[in-house]
Design a protein around this nucleic acid. Structure first.
Lengths: 178, 178
DNA sequence: CACAATCATGTCAATATTTACATGATTTCT
DNA sequence: AGAAATCATGTAAATATTGACATGATTGTG
């Protein structure tokens, strides 16, 4: 599988990055669909260097702070493109602990269940609002082929996903109260 | 975390089950939100027995086929209820390989990108249709407190999620062609 | 200037998950 | 009756992921 490998190749292809940069990306937009901690990222970067897919240059910031700025080698770009162009089957499961719990909701007291649903609803609404604010920053849909086009696609995706989640929670709360 | 632990406790709480039964559940509705293979399930069942949360009875089916039918012990039900009633924070990331790839879509040829999107669209539409057929089997929303209520909630959730996915793919295809 | 937050890189142990290996019984279809 | 599909239970090795441990530099704030 090695999805992290390709996620990292993709990010480095966007722009030369340090492990720290990559860690940050996973906390930003992209983090809605893939995430990894630095403890997974640094070893993977080392491995990709060993495999000859990426290389790095050590840069000194300030007096002594060493940064390793990674960039793609030809082989890395090749493998990235191969992965991107593959027509993979849809993945059957996007794990969701909360929905799993709702499968067993008959064991929760009605009042408390509504509280749990409302707590999720609040968080999801907030998230949705944040995402919407971000998409409002685009005056128009970015040009196809630009990096921003990808940003825009996944942002829209995140918004639709959150909106559906909110819709589900709202409905579920209603269902509980009937 | 041990989500699998609680997933299994929840399933056994619904009805006494074998490892094989549990494996099947993860391939059915519930599999939309959580999944585990039998190689993960059997060791976990053993562990739960060791921890005194569940117990089993060996049943012979036919001539010689041995089944282990697991059921909840008090302590297991206690821990399940505790987990179900917790107000947990929303999980920030539902991993999605395809959307991750779309983040890097600027590296894919326009024509091929549309093909990839359409391939996903077809699969998602099919999935959505299957789910809708299932919900049509309910003549009405099940009674709150019944097991079917939980089934219904997650089924609706799956439908809304797939519909949002389909909507996103359709929009993205349009965006590519502009 | 002191403190906090953030930048920056790593390792290690534990846990979670997948893939492959392994075996045998029962049921269904031809 | 023979074959295929499904029922049924396990283990082992490899891979993926998390959480804790560890260290030091730089920047922003009061």
């Amino acid at each position: 599988m090695r999805t992290l490998k390709y996620a990292i190749l993709g990010l480095i292809n966007r722009r030369p990055s340090t492990g720290y940069d990559i860690t940050k990306e996973f906390k930003a937009e992209l983090g809605n669909f893939w995430r990894a901690r630095h403890s997974q990222i640094y070893p993977e970067l080392k491995r990709l260097v060993d495999e000859g897919l990426i290389e790095y240059e050590t840069v000194i910031a300030g007096e002594a702070l060493e940064k390793k700025v990674y960039s793609l080698k030809d082989k890395g770009r090749e493998e990235l493109l191969e992965w991107l162009n593959k027509d993979e089957k849809m993945v059957p499961t996007a794990k969701d602990k909360f929905r799993l719990r709702m499968y067993f909701s008959s064991n929760i007291e009605q009042e408390h269940l509504v509280e749990l649903l409302e707590s999720q609803l609040e968080q999801r609404r907030e998230k949705l609002a944040t995402l919407k604010k971000k998409i409002d920053g685009y005056s128009e849909v970015p040009q196809f082929g630009s990096q921003e086009f990808g940003d825009y696609l996944v942002l829209e995706s995140a918004i639709l996903r959150e909106a559906a989640y909110v819709e589900w929670l709202e409905r579920s709360i209603k269902r509980c109260s009937q």
